[in-house]
Write a protein that binds this DNA or RNA. Sequence first.
DNA 1: AGCCGATCTGAGCGGAACTTGAGGATCACG
DNA 2: CGTGATCCTCAAGTTCCGCTCAGATCGGCT
Lengths: 251, 251
Amino acid sequence: MRLLLVEDDERVAAALVAVLGRHGFQVRHARSGHEALDALVPDGNEPYRVVLLDLGLPDRDGFEVCSRIRAGSGVPVIMVTARADIRSRIHGLNLGADDYVTKPYDMGELLARIHAVARRGTAPTAVAVSAPDTVPQQRGPLESRGIRIDRERRRVSVDGRDVPLTRKEFDLLALLAQSPGVVYRREQIFSEVWRSGWEGNGRTLEVHIGSLRNKLALPGLVEAVRGVGYRLIPDSPAPAPEPAPPAPAER
Amino acid sequence: MRLLLVEDDERVAAALVAVLGRHGFQVRHARSGHEALDALVPDGNEPYRVVLLDLGLPDRDGFEVCSRIRAGSGVPVIMVTARADIRSRIHGLNLGADDYVTKPYDMGELLARIHAVARRGTAPTAVAVSAPDTVPQQRGPLESRGIRIDRERRRVSVDGRDVPLTRKEFDLLALLAQSPGVVYRREQIFSEVWRSGWEGNGRTLEVHIGSLRNKLALPGLVEAVRGVGYRLIPDSPAPAPEPAPPAPAER
DNA sequence: AGCCGATCTGAGCGGAACTTGAGGATCACG
DNA sequence: CGTGATCCTCAAGTTCCGCTCAGATCGGCT
């Protein structure tokens, strides 16, 4: 059974490779998110049954790696990380991870969890991972429709013009911009931008959406989806992953 | 989305039912392992998408309940328990549980984990106990007869032409498209698309079906099955395994 | 403490979405 | 071929939901 380990710490990786090997896994070790995404491109070999993803990667955000994996494949992903806070957990799981394990973990439990997601299997994927960078996903600063979002500096600019945003406004925009076009449900927004379990009582969300719209001054960018939530309208009319050749993967 | 909650503490259960209900789950509450196993017997209704299993049950060991569930069904099981020791965790996961959450847990995280296992869907495994249409929730856009349904983006296109749908219309279509050819009974549709067991009094369903048909402009796609409900006609073969007699399993 | 920006809440408005009812069309069945 | 049940369509109501504004509250900073 093939397993993809994404981990930049050589010592940790070596230990995991050894243990997993003893338990019957054939482990491929990727040292960066880039290498991991490369490794997942179907190449005729037996596909990976599980991805073990460490979030503390050097080259790019581990969350981003996860959503890119998820954009192209249904392979089960287990996030393994030292970040134990609730927000990160929820965020990781909402990005499509199948499990989220915090360090330090018990090796036996990790193995059990690997088996749990592996036996459930790879989800069917209609998305063909053809051309690598045709999917306009976040790389470094997010960029879409002239908006540049710098997560590290928490700065946003529209057509070069700097737009000062408050905390909530920024978090809101950063969340929506993560996958332009995708509808984020209200509960999901609350659980990611506000403390979890918070039920929005008043008109809080609408007010923040309103001020965000005002400051960005890009009419039509933030769209309300009645009864569901909000989404960003991507510039390119190419909204969704390819209709894809109806070629079924089987046989 | 139906969810089976197995919990003997009434207060805990009530709280969970409330929160889960607000998040769009139709919750069935079983107070014992016996009741849970009963509830999981396929009865023609929409199958449960997730089981939330508390291990502290009075009548029998929660672990046993889990393995019995697993013996007859591929439904995802999340164990929720105060037993945090490693041995129990590993034991639970090895018995077939898909996740293991210890009390006290964060509600937001629990919700995220529920969604994580639900989106992965019911395992194809199962002992095929005459559970015909437990089609796992598909990842990626559904596609059939030139209709592309993107659940994430809540967008529908017919032959590339974008078709804006309202909430009910979209939910309705997404439900029917889940298993083209399968007849969805009226009560089933109401319980999925209109949450909180509300029986349609007027001509509500017909009107929404009507406007859906208008917008899609694909004559013959949505078929009414007199006295029963509706279904989508798949392009390819006509699988007519539907006995569709007046379902006697009604309670 | 006092200030000031950020966040939250409540009320009112307008429009979209949903529901209802009636009449006509269609179907199953005798 | 008649009849009742079921479904479809149209045209109203009615409810729900998002937007905005204005004021209250929170929280960090000096």
